[in-house]
């Protein structure tokens, strides 16, 4: 969390809205445990990382939707998803992230 605060503050100072994305559950293999966090600005800039890259693209898309709607969301990514080929964790896990606006 600490590593993304400077970016969050900067975006908020620039008047951008920001979504916070946190890993809430991981099943199977995954480098980041519960509590790993990243932030996405409304212009799609990213701070921090959740998994080393496998789902970040899909997470950014979800974060932008959350910022547009203002509604928090729980998203699950992994091989069990129908769009597994698009966003599956290469390490074979399933990851649940909570996405919410923080300003």
């Amino acid at each position: 969390m600490q590593d993304i605060l400077d970016d969050i503050d900067r975006w908020r100072d620039e008047g951008e809205r920001v979504a916070l994305v946190r890993v809430v559950a991981v099943e199977g293999s995954g480098p980041a445990g519960p509590g790993a966090a990243m932030a996405v600005s409304e212009h799609g800039e990213v701070s921090g990382s959740l998994t080393g890259g496998c789902v970040e693209g899909a997470v950014v898309a979800a974060a932008l939707e959350v910022l547009a709607s203002g509604l928090p969301r729980l998203c699950t990514f992994g091989y069990s998803d129908e769009d597994a080929f698009a966003v599956g964790l290469t390490c074979g896990g399933v990851i649940s992230v909570f996405v919410e606006p923080v300003g």
Partner: peptide
Amino acid sequence: MTELFDQVRERVRRNVPVVIATVVGL
């Protein structure tokens, strides 16, 4: 948690342990 996030951030900045409990599923 926009308003509460400032309280979290302030704790993290001061290296004070903090817990966020968030409803993520209904």
